[in-house]
Design a protein around this nucleic acid. Sequence first.
DNA 1: AAAACTACCTGAGTGC
DNA 2: TGCACTCAGGTAGTTT
Length: 270
Amino acid sequence: MPELPEVETTRRGILPHLRGELVSNVIVRNPAMRWPIEKNVNRITGMTITGVSRRAKYLLIECSAGTLMLHLGMSGSLRVCQPDIPLKKHDHFIMQLKNGTELRLHDPRRFGAVIWHEGAINDHSLINHLGPEPLDHDFHADYLHRSCRDRKTSIKQHIMNGKVVVGVGNIYASEALFRSGIHPKRLAGRISKPRLERLVDEIKSVLDEAINQGGTTLRDFLNESGQPGYFKQRLAVYDREKDRCISCAGTIRRIVISNRSTFYCPTCQK
DNA sequence: AAAACTACCTGAGTGC
DNA sequence: TGCACTCAGGTAGTTT
């Protein structure tokens, strides 16, 4: 479900509820996530949360002696609420705070993850191979151009590859390519530098705008208060097969690239 | 090394 | 109503 804007929206939403609070208990209702939730997540009990950060699509709940890493997978969402709100079927993990509120991880498909890590986060094997953050200064045209060199994969797969750049998922890959006028199947190694420059700019701006709109709710993404995001109204191509292109009034097409739906305008994107 | 493919899981929607 | 089938926002791990 969530790409970078949805994870960042969640981070900003939960941060004021968690920062400075003491963890009184954790409850694992169903440990069968992408990897089994280990018993060591209990170590956060009694600790004070110092911050909530994000690396790629991982949310990092930071304490002085370790970090609780959360991933929302395809269908995960977090909710901060009072304990008397009825639990949902797929509320698999709960972190209770001494102030009486609790954080609930809801994830029907269970592709998400809950991991306790002590030590530097960049040492973790799920983090240490990742490319730059798309909104950071080290993701720039020179870098993307170099990374594309001699690559025989499609540009869409390339920008969705976390070793190249993190956080660009299936929605925003299609959107950024539309904004850049680049056909999603074009080989990464066969795109001129000026066009990649444009692509870098459009990746940054589409993610930035989506964050400002609270993310995209297609089916079930909700923020920490249970509210949807509003970027869906601004999607130019994603999930708009057979609709009119907002730029040329042609017809949006759906194709499949490595088993993922891909939307583009055949007139505007070459 | 890079590219292609598999696997994990539930639920909503469609067509018969 | 029920069954069979497709599709969905991710990504580690395996195979080619």
